[in-house]
Each structure stands twice: as structure tokens, then as C-alpha cells.
């Protein structure tokens, strides 16, 4: 498991000065305050709630702010079976979340439809939205959710937000098109 780039360079400058890259510091800030939007659909929601309570404290990862508003959250945790009836609502919620956003598919049902191979269950939330981390289990233990969260944090550390900023095409190209 790659731990991402170094957050700071070993420097000989004394005092409280840390040298780092803009990317690394932005990633560090983002990964340590992921605000989840819990899409708690079924049984996995109970383990999600347990992960946010006193025994498996998700607050130590900065993620206890479970805002039920998609506009204020970064991380969509799809916990539970996604049915076809619910699928478009989930997609709409994902679309409402502002960038940067990530998605965790928690549990077997969200990753792949789980043991429900039937006419009413969407076989995996990745059919309609991009998933960053899949957590297996039915339901995954809260420790597994925390492990998934940590892997997502490692993944975030490897992003290059500043260097790969999305750029609009140059003005003359837009006009020509």
C-alpha cells in the first residue's frame, strides 16, 4: 500500500517551518476532514452508525460530520442494497455533491448487488456512479469501514489537484468549435 508522497521535506531550516508541496498539503487537508453523506439504505447503515458511535469512533478520522445534505459533503458512502427504484435518486444525490467528491461502496450489495440477484436490485452502484473504494462484507464490520476510509485517504494523498487542474479549452478553440 503506497502511502502517498511525503507531506514535508526534511529541511534544515529551524523554527516552525515545514516545506511541502501545495498538492500534498491540499490532499492532507482533504483526507483528514472528509464529510460523509451517508446513503444508508439497508443493514449496512446500522454498521455505519455503529462506526460513528463511541466504540469505533469515526471522528478520529475527521469524518463524524454526517451531513445529510449532499451539498455540504465530500464523501458518499453507499451503505446497503441499491434497488432500481432508488438508483436514480442516488445518482441525483451524487450529482448534487460538489467536487471534489469520492464514493465508497460499503458492503456486498452496494459493490455488486450482493446476494440479491433479482429483478429489483441494481447489481452494484458502480453501474451508475464512479466508486473509489469497495468494502466487502455483509455487513462489513465497522473496522472494515474504517480500513476502507483509510485506503481512501491514501488514495487521496496521491492526487495531484493543482498540477492537473481541469482547464477549460482555450478561448480560440472554443470559438472555433
Amino acid at each position: 500500500m503506497v502511502h502517498g508522497r511525503d507531506l514535508s521535506y526534511n529541511s534544515k531550516v529551524e523554527g516552525n517551518i515545514v516545506l511541502t508541496t501545495l498538492d500534498a498539503s491540499i490532499n492532507w487537508m482533504r483526507k483528514n476532514s472528509l464529510w460523509p453523506m451517508p446513503m444508508g439504505l439497508a443493514c449496512c447503515a446500522i454498521e455505519l452508525m455503529a462506526a460513528s458511535c463511541a466504540r469505533f469512533d469515526i471522528a478520529r478520522f475527521g469524518a463524524e460530520v454526517m451531513r445529510f445534505s449532499p451539498r455540504q459533503s465530500d464523501l458518499l458512502i453507499v451503505a446497503g442494497t441499491v434497488t432500481y427504484k432508488m438508483a436514480l435518486s442516488s445518482k441525483r444525490i451524487w450529482d448534487q455533491m460538489p467536487e471534489p467528491k469520492w464514493c465508497i461502496a460499503m458492503g456486498a450489495c452496494a459493490s455488486s448487488g450482493g446476494m440479491y440477484r433479482s429483478y429489483a436490485v441494481l447489481q452494484g452502484i458502480d453501474r451508475i456512479l464512479p466508486v473509489d473504494v469497495y468494502i466487502s462484507g455483509c455487513p462489513p464490520r465497522p473496522e472494515a469501514l474504517l480500513e476502507g476510509l483509510m485506503r481512501l485517504q491514501n488514495k487521496i494523498m496521491q492526487e495531484r489537484s493543482v498540477t492537473e487542474q481541469k482547464q477549460l479549452p482555450a478561448l480560440n478553440e472554443r470559438v472555433a468549435a
Binding site: T83, K85, M86, S89, Y116
Partner: peptide, 11 residues
């Protein structure tokens, strides 16, 4: 309701 209808009875 029906947002969690998984088809248990048919299964």
C-alpha cells in the same frame, strides 16, 4: 415505499 424492495419472496 418500495425503495428497498429486493424481491425476497421471488428469491
Amino acid at each position: 415505499i418500495g425503495y428497498l424492495h429486493r424481491g425476497d419472496e421471488k428469491i
